[in-house]
Amino acid sequence: MNAHTPVAVLAALLLAAPAAPASTADAPAVPAGAALRLTVTGPGPATTAPTPDGAAAPASASRTVTLHCDPPGGDHPRARAACADLDASRGRVERDSDTACVLLYDPVEVRAEGVWRGRPVSFSRTYGNTCELNARTGAVFAF
C-alpha cells in the first residue's frame, strides 16, 4: 500500500491521534471506531424534467457519503443500521446472502475506503444490480 493513499493517510491520522479526553466537550472530531468514505456508482433515478428534445435526462448516478461508528454518524442516512451491519460481520463490508435476485444486469459499482476499528478498509466491487448489492452489503451502501 502506498503511504499516500487515502486509507494510509487516514490510518496514520487515527493512529497518531491522542487518547480520547475524559470530557465529551473535548472529544475528537472523527470517532476512532470507524471512518469510512462510501461511494455508489450505478443506475440512478431518471428525472422527470424533459430536455429540449423531449427526452428525460438521467440523474447523476454517483453518490458518496461518510460513515462514522462509535457513535454512528457522518452523512450516511442509515448510519446506525450500517454500523450494526459492520459490527455483525466484524468489519467485512460484504456478507453471504441467500436472497434470490432477478437476473437483470444493471451494474452497480461500490467502493469503501477508510478505517474500521483501527484496521484499514479498501473495498471495491461491481454487483449485477441493486438487489444483489443490497443482499450482499445490507445497509452499508443503502443511501
Rank of each mutant, 00 (worst) to 15 (best):
M1H: 13
N2P: 14
N2M: 08
A3T: 15
P6V: 12
V7K: 06
V9Y: 01
A11D: 13
A12F: 04
L15E: 14
P18Y: 01
P18M: 02
P18G: 04
P18E: 02
A19D: 10
A20W: 00
A20D: 10
T24E: 09
T24M: 06
T24L: 10
T24F: 04
A25H: 04
A25I: 02
D26Q: 06
P28L: 02
A32C: 00
G33E: 09
G33H: 05
A35H: 04
A35D: 02
V40L: 13
V40F: 02
G42A: 09
P43L: 11
G44R: 08
G44W: 03
A46I: 13
T47I: 07
T48C: 13
T48R: 11
A49L: 15
A49N: 11
T51Y: 05
D53Y: 03
D53N: 10
G54S: 05
A61I: 04
S62Y: 00
S62Q: 14
S62T: 15
R63C: 05
R63Y: 06
T64N: 04
T66S: 12
H68E: 09
D70E: 14
P72F: 03
G74N: 12
D75I: 11
H76D: 11
H76G: 12
P77A: 07
R80E: 15
R80S: 15
A82R: 11
C83Y: 06
C83N: 07
A84C: 07
D85M: 05
D85R: 05
A88M: 01
A88L: 07
R90T: 07
R90H: 15
R90C: 03
V93Y: 01
V93M: 06
R95C: 02
D96K: 12
D96C: 01
T99K: 10
A100C: 01
A100E: 13
A100V: 14
L103K: 13
D106Y: 01
V110D: 01
V110A: 03
V110P: 07
R111M: 10
A112L: 07
A112R: 05
R117W: 00
R117E: 07
R119Q: 13
V121W: 04
V121P: 07
F123V: 05
R125T: 08
Y127D: 04
G128Y: 02
E132N: 06
L133C: 11
L133F: 08
R136Y: 08
G138L: 11
A139E: 12
A139G: 09
F141G: 12
A142W: 10
A142H: 14
A142P: 03
A142I: 00
